[in-house]
Nucleic acid binder design. Structure first.
Lengths: 215, 215
DNA sequence: TTGACAACCTTACGGCGTAAGCGTACCTTA
DNA sequence: TAAGGTACGCTTACGCCGTAAGGTTGTCAA
């Protein structure tokens, strides 16, 4: 009667679906088991514990990232494409933002990703330390931006104006903060395009890195 | 016999100490209560629930940040000082990194902080949209950098080399990733100075923002 | 003196991760 | 074919968690 035997892959797939739907806090061993028509303790035949399960999830997320190609002629284009991909992936898996760089046991996709980034920069002529600087700076920006995006209330992410208004409504008196008043009114009026905002910062950083390299 | 009456401030102070010591996952209502010589349910006379308590903690963290002064002559200096302060504060309170921008009920220190940043940029001559760009970019970098720092295992943060070696030991075969080999060996050899790394990216961003403004 | 209210308490519920160990179905090897 | 091992799903149980419900006690106003 059991459709398919339980495997690590099936466990991870069910857990990924749960995490995407309700965030990390709604991911429990019991719920994953229920989704698979199985008891919680059965999962432990395929993952060591919850941390191992999360390690597996994070590597699935890494595997979705579009990698830069070391040696490609246009390193800025490669890094931009990869950065945009990371933002997209982390938007699909918001719960993952804080976990990507915290794994003590990096999975294969994780290693492949960091290797490709360093490779692309080194082959583009960056000295070792400069490549470390560049990848650290880029990743900080990308993860920081994704963090801010992921911090919005889960469902209403596309409607920034609503969130702004809700936040404003929770504040008793805004008159001591004139510059914030401007932000609130302007955001509610003209909205806020995350993709454009992300691209602005990304291109500014890539341009500055290029200038710093060829200087 | 009870030394002092329980207050919201005393509850928050005890919770802050617990969170700093053991991270968010070691912060429970029962432990906070025990630390105060009180039962868990007594806390609910002073905080609405755990989320309200965390909201209070985050605002305490915001209050520790050194604010930029709107109208000061050297806006880059102001923003740099504030950025360095944010990094220091988030290093003292690593658990807070992912929570700073996710509060649906921003506290007074939170509002004051964002108001000061926008004010400093607007008074320095940034147009409204440019100021939003700049503060978004800077915060993304700062939080992203803090996130990477906070993601290290809790105690050994000062000894980067150890962490790198432990991570490397958890990987079976590194030969498919030549650029990572370089990173691992070089990091173990020469170490990694987070403060320097942070300053590099920060100055690069501030310089690029200045160029974009006066262009 | 009375009665309201605030602050702290006990008890209890449903959920969590996971340690310990049971039953069974299959595979190997003699 | 029989024996024994192993893999895999199961039940039970423990000590945590947040918090709803409601009891007790001390203080202060009328």
């Amino acid at each position: 009667m059991r459709r398919a035997p339980l495997t690590r892959e099936r466990v991870l797939a069910a857990a990924l679906e749960l995490a995407d739907a309700g965030g990390l806090e709604s991911l429990s061993m019991r719920k994953v088991a229920t989704a698979l028509g199985v008891e919680a303790m059965s999962l432990y035949n395929h993952v060591a514990n919850k941390e191992d399960l999360v390690d597996g999830l994070v590597d699935l997320v890494f595997a979705e990232i579009d990698l830069p190609v070391p040696g490609a002629p246009d390193w800025k284009g490669e890094m931009r494409r990869r950065a945009v991909s990371v933002r997209e992936v982390l938007n699909r898996h918001r719960w993952a933002v804080g976990l990507m760089e915290s794994r003590m046991r990096p999975g294969p996709a994780n290693l492949r990703s960091h290797n490709a980034v360093m490779g692309c920069l080194r082959e583009a002529g960056f000295a070792f330390r400069a490549a470390v600087h560049a990848s650290s700076l880029l990743d900080a920006y990308i993860y920081g931006f994704a963090l801010q995006e992921a911090s919005l209330p889960f469902d209403t992410a596309q409607d920034h104006a609503e969130v702004v208004e809700a936040k404003q409504a929770a504040v008793p008196d805004l008159t001591p903060f004139p510059y914030l008043v401007e932000v609130f009114t302007e955001m509610a009026r003209a909205g806020y395009d995350y993709a454009t905002e992300f691209a602005f910062g990304l291109d500014l950083i890539l341009g500055a890195l290029e200038r710093a390299q060829t200087k």
